[in-house]
């Protein structure tokens, strides 16, 4: 029986198609191919952040999660792996990209394997992924694969990019196949910080045996 993985591609590219999306698609494609060689089936879903730009801005200023944004959150919540790809603007990831991930509940992506990717007009931005984006995904408690993807204009004609895509893709497949996320979530979920209603509205357990709960019921903290 083949196991099925859901891979969610998040792209903050702005043109259609964008090189940012192209890079993400190539990574997703390789993930699917390499997974198939190991008898895994991969279902790829794509979240185009440009289509959510208005709702992302609304959510940032008013906590109001629109319908399309809710759908994207749900997709990520069920993802076994993620490819997150952004253009580099002014020596940093696109504000659209970081805004989207800043809106998510802190515990939505815990232990999920992620390939990070960025595109830029110049190779001088090459360290944006490792120096800036990894921090955000570390905060979200994801597992970012060792190989980061970065493509500036000249990389698109260099076969070395394909090699790096292959490396990152296999790293992601290995992490998904190892069941790391499932194990962490099933055995250790309670050790992470949660809020009532977090994890995209699914975290509803209430610990009645806490100091605060005893205080709520007339006791002493």
């Amino acid at each position: 029986m083949t196991e099925q993985f859901t891979l969610v591609v998040v792209s903050a590219g702005t043109s259609d198609p964008s090189s940012t999306r192209l890079l993400a698609d190539r990574a997703a494609q390789r993930v699917a191919t390499l997974a198939a060689e190991k008898q895994y089936e991969v279902d790829v879903q794509v979240v185009e952040l440009r289509e959510l730009a208005g709702e992302i801005a609304n959510a940032l200023v008013s906590n109001h999660i629109g319908a399309k944004l809710q759908k994207a959150i749900k997709a990520l919540q069920h993802a076994d792996g993620i490819v997150a790809s952004t253009p580099v603007y002014k020596a940093g990831a696109s504000g659209l990209f970081t805004s989207f991930f800043q809106i998510l509940d802190n515990d939505l992506l815990i232990a999920k394997p992620v390939v990070l990717a960025a595109t830029a007009g110049t190779a001088r931005h090459a360290l944006v992924v490792d120096d800036q984006m990894r921090g955000l995904f570390a905060y979200l408690r994801t597992v970012v694969v060792p190989t980061s993807l970065f493509a500036s204009t000249e990389d698109w004609q260099d076969n070395a990019l394909n090699k790096r895509i292959d490396r990152a893709a296999l790293e992601l497949v290995a992490l998904m196949a190892a069941g790391f996320e499932k194990q962490v979530r099933s055995e250790s979920w309670g050790r992470y910080q949660h809020e009532f209603g977090s994890a995209g509205g699914t975290e509803l357990s209430i610990d009645l045996d806490s100091d605060l709960m005893r205080l709520a019921a007339g006791g002493h903290a």
């Binding site: 008013s62 906590n63 109001h64 999660i65 809020e195 009532f196 209603g197 509205g201 209430i206 009645l208 605060l212 709960m213 205080l215 709520a216 019921a217 007339g218």
Partner: peptide
């Protein structure tokens, strides 16, 4: 809005519980 401890205290004392019900979808 989303603090179970406050709901617990209201329940413990038999007081009322109020949800402001303005900013967020009803599921909250």
């Amino acid at each position: 809005i989303r603090t179970p401890e406050i709901a617990e205290q209201a329940a413990y004392y038999g007081d009322g519980f109020f949800a402001n019900n303005i900013f967020w979808p009803k599921e909250h």
